[in-house]
Write a protein that binds this DNA or RNA. Structure first.
Length: 309
DNA sequence: CTATTCACCTGGGTGC
DNA sequence: TGCACCCAGGTGAATA
């Protein structure tokens, strides 16, 4: 699942292989890929033709490619999206949702997305209003997304204040892209493990030291994952798929149910939270007082309702 | 305004 | 072998 490090790897790949090139043809193979673009598939393709990719930018899990001073191609990879650059004559895989060829006749760009949660959209961009030194444009549809912890516009003090003001659990807060962007289920669990915090911990009870420990953990986890993803930068293929190799980075908690915690050896537990799995160490990450232990099973009614759909 | 719930998707895996 | 179902989960619209 592409979270900040994977999306940044894609951004760097696009910067290297696509920026400076001009679109010869744009083809939408599945209209769902541009469902958020009011111009529709034909309008989108028409508007993209002849445009030049000027810059590759990112905030959190969103990517955008400036086309001029006010317009950009916005991309979100969703669960399974990939942006692949390669030989324009290679066969078209069944999950290619959109394709761009370039006037130089070189490698093409393909938006591939099995589960179709991702999308592309031509947008207008306005100057970011989140930092005096920030001069770049941010697309209007993602103006509500908070800066991510690796960008200059990120304000740690403001994050701490807003985090502890919320009335919610700490993991839910980490996944809230309007509070801090770029973190998904995997790195949320990894950061909480590293900071020795349980996912259900009420944000209002977090001590100052715990907040800074958590933010440090978030930055470390993202930075390390980014480093291991960086090895694929030289490849022509800009790959962000779970199977692509660097995604098997070492994880300490996520997906390791029953395996020993690397810190203390206690078997990692899995619990259901927000209808998804949360992995944590029962010894290092003690549940807050009064929190209900939850098992991975769904409630009977929910399972039945889901099954009948 | 804030917090919560749900719809949107598909292919691999599992159990009967 | 075939079928039904579960599961992965980020986003934004709808709802409370």
């Amino acid at each position: 699942m592409p979270e900040l490090p994977e999306v940044e790897t894609v951004r760097a790949g696009i910067e290297r292989h696509v920026v400076g090139r001009t679109v010869a043809t744009a083809t939408v193979l599945n209209p769902r890929a541009v469902r958020r673009d009011p111009a529709g598939p034909e309008g989108f393709a028409d508007a993209m033709t002849g445009r030049t990719f000027l810059r590759a930018e990112r905030r959190g899990k969103y990517l955008w490619f400036a086309l001029d001073d006010t317009e950009a191609l916005l991309a979100h990879l969703g669960m399974s999206g990939q942006l692949l650059v390669g030989d324009p004559d290679r066969p078209l895989s069944p999950h290619v949702r959109a394709r761009f060829t370039f006037t130089d006749g070189g490698p093409d760009l393909r938006f591939t997305d099995q589960r179709t949660f991702g999308h592309l959209m031509l947008v207008t961009a306005a100057p970011a209003a989140d930092g005096a030194e920030v001069r770049r444009l941010v697309p209007a549809p993602i103006a509500h997304i908070a800066p991510d912890p690796l960008e200059a516009a990120f304000d740690a003090k403001d994050f701490a204040a807003r985090l502890t003001r919320k009335r919610t659990e700490v993991k839910r807060a980490l996944l809230d892209q309007s509070l801090i962007s770029g973190i998904g289920n995997i790195y949320a669990d990894e950061a909480l493990w590293r900071a020795k915090l349980h996912w259900a911990r009420p944000t209002q009870t977090l001590k100052r030291g715990e907040v800074s420990r958590l933010l440090d953990a978030v930055r470390e986890v993202l930075t390390e994952a980014l480093k291991s993803g960086g090895t694929s930068f030289d490849a022509l293929y800009v790959n962000v798929n779970g199977e692509s190799g660097y995604f098997d980075r070492s994880l300490n908690a996520y997906g390791r149910e029953g395996e020993p915690c690397p810190r203390c050896g206690t078997p990692v537990r899995r619990e259901t939270f927000m209808n998804r799995s949360s992995y944590s160490c029962p010894h290092c990450q003690r549940p807050p007082r009064g929190s209900t232990e939850r098992t991975p099973q769904r409630v009977a009614g929910a399972a039945q309702a889901a099954g009948s759909r």
